[in-house]
Amino acid sequence: MSLRGVMHVEVHALDELRRWVPYCGEAPGPEVWLSRWNLDPVLGAVLLLAALALWRMPVGSDATPRRRLSLRGAWALAVVLYVSPLCALSSTFFTVRVIHHLALVLVMAPLLVFGLEPWLRRLPVSLWSATAIATVVFWIWHAPAPYAAALSSDGIYALMQGTLLASAMAFWLAVRRAAPAAAMGAVLVTTVWMGLLGALITFAGRPLYPPHFASALSWGVAPLEDQQLAGITMWAPGSIAYLAAAMWIGWRWMGAERARGVRADLA
């Protein structure tokens, strides 16, 4: 390629980097990303108030030590996802963004549901409606057009994060309330849909997510390679996490049945 061609490619890459400025900021290069902490004052104030509330929360009937620990774990994860350099790195790689979203729906949502469960008792949730909504929301935000919109607007980004978390919380709350067989079924259905989405992203023949084209190249990574790794991450670890949840539900169900059988024998 001629010098003029190289310069044209570099200018185009810089234009692409300027075009996509998500909430976590411009995609950082490999030499600066560790210094890129998100110092958003609004987020900082919210996290500070949450920390004061959590660490001063009295232990009572609705705030057991385990629930407090769960809420504190969710708070710590929020700091990692939205304040630490991982936030900036998710602007660079689609793979990191997928990890970010998996942590949101598979770790933060269950932690919040368990910690806030006493205050969520009256919230009406249907298992299969919650399962369908959580699945549709996850699929929508990983379609190229809505995803690109979220990475070009702070408001749409907040909508993406909020709906992903809220729908996942509704799903896990419904799973906790459901009978074991129904809960296992819902989790296994979600496993299938998560794996299918990951497979579609993995085997796509071309890069689908423009916000990461130039940023991945700046690290020497081809956008298609980044996308394929993201799809595999969603397909394998994501599906395995849901499968593990289904197995845990089944294990507890069998344990309860064995205990009921022992009590019946003793009676």
Rank of each mutant, 00 (worst) to 15 (best):
H8P: 00
V9A: 13
L17W: 02
L17K: 08
R18F: 02
R19Q: 09
W20H: 10
V32N: 12
W37G: 09
W37R: 01
A45W: 13
L49W: 08
A51S: 14
A51K: 07
P58D: 10
G60D: 12
D62Y: 02
P65L: 13
R66C: 00
L71F: 03
V79C: 15
V79F: 14
L81D: 01
V83Q: 05
P85W: 03
C87D: 01
L89F: 04
F93M: 01
F93H: 01
F94D: 01
H100D: 01
V105Y: 03
L106I: 08
V107G: 06
A109G: 07
A109H: 03
P118E: 02
S129Q: 14
T131E: 10
A132V: 14
I133G: 04
V137H: 07
F138Q: 11
H142K: 03
A145W: 15
P146T: 01
P146Y: 00
L151K: 08
S152Q: 14
S153F: 05
D154K: 07
A158L: 11
Q161I: 07
T163H: 06
L165E: 04
A168G: 10
M169Y: 07
W172D: 12
W172F: 13
A183M: 03
T190V: 05
L196Y: 12
I201T: 11
A216H: 09
L217P: 00
W219M: 03
V221C: 02
Q228H: 11
L229Y: 05
M234H: 12
G238V: 01
I240Q: 08
L243G: 12
W248G: 07
A256K: 11
A256W: 11
R258M: 13
R260Q: 13
G261I: 05
V262G: 01
